[in-house]
């Protein structure tokens, strides 16, 4: 055995270890980033769903923005009011209550009222069906009813009803916007919950032609716009409601011949106007998408 060699090696390695360790220790102190301990605390208080509904990539960046004073706790659409108050108390800021937003579907053409021209067979996904010449629904704008939104929703707030239309549970909806992205027909949008007047149609067809395909489609007759001048405007053959023009009533829905514009009653659900025609199912439910 050559003790000199062994000792040299041990000394060399020990020396390198010592030098590197010194460098690391110096680096930790020298390059240390001051992190506000409040960020961790605020992050703890947030729901931790990382849904992105607040407009930030996740809960941590949102917590950083909160501590930095860039936003107010009310921006978090998932947390309850008490959660918001806790954070506001902790940081000593305003709650900044925001109007609750919910996702709403601009289509009422379920399989009971809307016709399919063709039966789609293939990957069970709306976005796949939409790429096969629109998916086979008579109305090219309408909901395909395969339920990509139901799958996309992390909060169990969207469920398909018996007519293959998604129904949003407004209490559970956190307005994260996942369904808005998931829908290939762009039918979902985030709306203030207390806005009750809703155009449940996206058809840009003019005239009664749409009724061939959907009994609750908008025919662009413009009666709602006449009944609420200034608040509703016809744009691209569809009424567009300007919610900033003060509280609206269910007046504009009353003369709608098809019930395409509805009043979303908090208890009774969507209410069609008096003039809306009775819905008579045209085909059997067999034609529903798979």
């Amino acid at each position: 055995m050559n003790w000199t060699n062994i000792l040299t090696n041990v000394a060399m390695l020990g020396g390198i270890t010592l030098i590197l360790a010194t460098m690391l220790v110096t680096a930790t102190h020298w390059l240390y980033v001051e992190d506000d301990p409040r960020i961790d605390a605020v992050e703890e208080m947030l729901p931790g769903t990382n849904c992105g509904g607040c407009g930030f990539p996740g809960c941590r960046p949102f917590a950083e923005a909160l501590v930095g004073g860039k936003v107010l706790p009310g921006k978090c659409s998932v947390g309850s009011e008490s959660d918001h108050e806790r954070i506001a108390d902790y940081l000593g800021v305003d709650v900044g209550a925001e109007a609750k937003m919910v996702a709403r579907l601009a289509c009422a053409g379920g399989s009971n009222v809307a016709r399919n021209h063709a039966h789609y067979v293939g990957l069970s996904s709306c976005s796949a069906a939409a790429l096969v010449a629109g998916g086979g629904k008579g109305c090219f704008w309408g909901c395909l009813g395969i339920g990509d939104c139901e799958v996309a929703c992390d909060f169990d707030a969207i469920h398909m009803n018996a007519h293959h239309l998604p129904v949003v549970d407004e209490d559970r909806c956190t307005a994260c916007g996942d369904c808005v992205v998931a829908c290939p027909k762009d039918l979902f949008s985030l709306q203030i919950q207390t806005n009750r007047l809703w155009v449940a149609c996206r058809s840009q067809e003019e005239g009664d032609g749409i009724l061939e395909d959907c009994q609750v489609g908008c025919t662009a007759c413009g009666r709602c716009a006449m009944d609420a001048p200034g608040c509703i405007e016809m744009k691209g053959n569809l009424p567009v409601v300007d919610y900033s023009k003060g509280p609206l009533t269910d007046g504009p829905t009353q003369r709608c011949p098809t019930g395409a514009i509805v009043w979303l009653d908090p208890i009774q659900g969507p209410q069609r106007g008096q003039s809306a025609g009775k819905i008579i199912r045209k085909g059997s439910l067999r034609d529903a998408p798979t």
């Binding site: 021209h117 063709a118 629109g134 086979g136």
Partner: peptide, 9 residues
């Protein structure tokens, strides 16, 4: 080819 969804195409 692409499957058609309507014969009005």
């Amino acid at each position: 080819g692409q499957a058609v969804s309507s014969l009005d195409i």
